[in-house]
Design a protein around this nucleic acid. Structure first.
Lengths: 233, 233
DNA sequence: TACGATAATATGCATGCACATATTAACGTG
DNA sequence: CACGTTAATATGTGCATGCATATTATCGTA
């Protein structure tokens, strides 16, 4: 049994957590007020507040101003996953990373992206096709569009030494983005690039990032077979 | 331009964020102390602390006790994704949910899971095979093992009315879990169940949850073609 | 010079207080 | 009774302060 230092906010959080787990407080309706809990634990309301805020952040309780705090009905299963720079991900596996730039040109944005990626009509974007390797075996295939209005410096970069991913992280920080994961079948090109059978199921990720209202980049990463994205909850 | 109320912790966070984005503070080394910032903004150190803590949580800055606060070199791209109960996910799409239980029996744990899912040797676990539907079209295929030592009540449940997912969320809350995502090709069985061509690339999710040291359930969900898991960052 | 003890320092956290704000309950008026 | 106004209340947040703790710098001694 982990003995919780009674009046640290983490300690109080653990006690509250246990009560929720043990159904002392039923899902759905309310738990005592901050002030009452503070008195019970013999600590300041601030400390209880901190513990409750943390539980609210993880979705276990719902808090409303005058309505009080209640145990969530369906505690949402939240997972935070860290999407590393591919180079770091590969190196963390103890393998050596390299990438090769397959294509690089300026072109109009493909119509498919017009909805999600709003650049001025007729404006060219920088298109990159990259293959990432781990120990000389293909690791992921990347197709990327970069809005030069958002990252003008990109035009002067060859992206042969540093990957676009890495360069953008350091030079065109985003404020927000959309991220999605899905599965695709390897077509003929993909299977050749990723050295796998045609038709293989591949894990794919698509990401659009913005700096404020300005779209920065759209990237689609398709990983070699066997890739798993892991996290803990 | 969003005018930030100067001395709210969120306002201060925005200002700090902007300075990081604008490279006022270079990635890698340190930003002024809490006390100095507090003086600059004309607020209490607590307030600056709150803002910096928030930035640290999102990974943008690294804080160490005596070493000060520094801008992260490679701001990790963190995404929190919410894994809903399938019924809720389907209903949120405006479609009607149902599920059908295909198999239910007690069996020894398959050897493949012995490593990750530590139940006493020779102990039977409850095995369930379920198909989830949205508007009568297959949505996801589920294979699940439940440790009856962790959730004894499960033995008396038919899981024909409430899904195991939902029942477990409400009756055997977990403390932590492992989660992973990957892609699989539809084999003959899967393609029949999910009404798709054999060989289709399918998005899959695997999850193991524990309550303390005791494993509760292992579940593998395979979604019908076209499924995308989305989130914002 | 090497190395261990000690001091300095930046963040971490707890407290007590005050006021802000959202939301609900109570109330009063037509 | 319906409905808009007002009061009550629980959480949200800010402030000043003090002490805890981790880590680094410094100093003294062998």
């Amino acid at each position: 049994m982990t003995l919780t230092d009674t009046n640290s906010w983490t300690g109080i959080r653990e006690v509250l957590l246990r009560r929720i787990h043990d159904r002392v407080w039923q899902p759905g309706e309310q738990i005592p007020h901050e002030a009452d809990l503070a008195q019970e634990f013999g600590c300041a309301r601030t400390t209880v507040n901190r513990a409750l805020r943390d539980l609210a952040e993880s979705g276990l309780v719902i808090r409303k101003r005058r309505a009080g705090t209640r145990v969530a009905l369906n505690p949402p299963q939240r997972a935070t996953l860290t999407i590393p720079i591919i180079r770091e991900e590969v190196e963390a596996l103890g393998r050596t990373y390299r990438h090769s730039l397959l294509e690089r040109d300026l072109r109009p944005l493909p119509p498919m992206l017009h909805g999600a990626f709003q650049v001025s009509l007729g404006e060219n974007v920088l298109f990159l096709k990259t293959l990432h390797f781990a120990d000389d075996r293909p690791y992921a295939f990347e197709e990327r569009y970069i809005n030069l209005k958002a990252a003008p410096g990109a035009q002067d970069m060859s992206f042969e030494d540093v990957s676009a991913n890495e360069w953008l992280v350091h030079n065109a920080p985003y404020s927000h983005g959309d991220l999605s994961f899905f599965a695709v079948n390897a077509d003929k090109t993909l299977s050749r690039k990723l050295d796998t059978a045609s038709g293989s199921a591949l894990f794919a990720m698509e990401r659009i990032t913005w700096s404020g209202e300005v779209p920065i980049t759209h990237v689609r990463l398709i990983f070699a077979p066997g890739y798993r994205m892991r996290t803990e909850i």
